[in-house]
């Protein structure tokens, strides 16, 4: 059951330049799945719409979930100022999440690019597979590496070569001679397109988490659609709603 409610900030810190790491006490933590997201409402009434932010980690015992996000505008700038004990307005849990059963026991790539890295953490925690975790960043302004390394073999790529492989996540795959039976990924569109092409050549499934500007976050407004290969079951046109039918789609299903 989705709900909007006011939760409490447990902690927040800046873990890399303009990248913030917040733990929130919320009942949403109990059934949040990796790859799902929450909508966070700014308090400033000039900024109305919920900001879709992926769930980075959950701690069911503490009833807490973690988000790691980048300051991208007025809303996220406001969130970055929240301190322990502050109220935060949440809508969740949203979206489908990554399918875990498909990867069970297989060789899996878990790929995150930039601010697409955070949802990979909870996925890495829960996925029972032989995991190569490949995280791509712009430069040495890295984050979540230590957390990710606990749950698989971590490979880093940076565009400027200041850490790990010089290049993107696909360059890291080639440089390290990695192989997989299944791919999970979240990141910018050029990265996801490259992964779709790679998975297509090898005929392996790739589950891609997509991003789009959203309004409602619950499937009503039809703002955040992605072109689909087949006619979508809900829309009856070649469009699926990223917020509810996604954000995770099998690469073959979507035209990106």
């Amino acid at each position: 059951m989705k709900q909007k409610h006011t939760a409490k900030v447990l902690s927040q810190q800046e873990i890399a330049l303009a990248i913030y790491d917040m733990w929130i006490e919320t009942p949403l933590a109990a059934d949040a799945r990796p790859g799902q997201f929450v909508g966070i409402y700014p308090k400033d009434k000039s900024t109305l719409l919920p900001r879709p932010i992926s769930i980075c980690e959950t701690d069911a015992a503490r009833g807490a979930l973690r988000i790691v996000y980048r300051i991208a505008g007025a809303g996220t700038r406001e969130f970055s100022g929240y301190r322990e004990g502050d109220a935060i307005s949440l809508l969740g849990n949203l979206g489908n999440g990554f399918p875990l059963e498909q990867g069970c026991g297989k060789r899996a790539f878990l790929m995150g690019g930039g601010i697409g890295v955070p949802p990979i953490l909870e996925l890495a925690k829960r996925l029972e597979a032989r995991k190569d975790i490949i995280a791509g960043y712009r430069d040495a302004n890295l984050f979540l590496g230590e957390d990710l390394a606990k749950y698989g073999t971590l490979h880093i790529a940076t565009e400027d070569g200041s850490a790990g492989t010089k290049g993107n996540v696909m360059d890291a795959v080639r440089e390290n001679g990695l192989e997989a039976d299944i791919i999970y990924a979240c990141g910018p569109m050029p990265m996801l397109r490259a992964i779709k092409a790679y998975a297509g050549e090898r005929d392996i499934p790739a589950y891609l988490s997509l991003e789009e500007h959203m309004a409602c976050g619950v499937g009503a407004c039809l703002g955040c659609v992605v072109k689909t290969k087949e006619i979508d079951h809900h829309s009856h046109v070649h469009n699926a709603r990223i917020c509810t039918d996604g954000p995770v789609f099998e690469a073959k299903e979507v035209e990106i």
Partner: peptide, 9 residues
């Protein structure tokens, strides 16, 4: 009707 391309909002 398929609607418009994104971004739509």
């Amino acid at each position: 009707w398929p609607g418009n391309p994104t971004p739509r909002v």
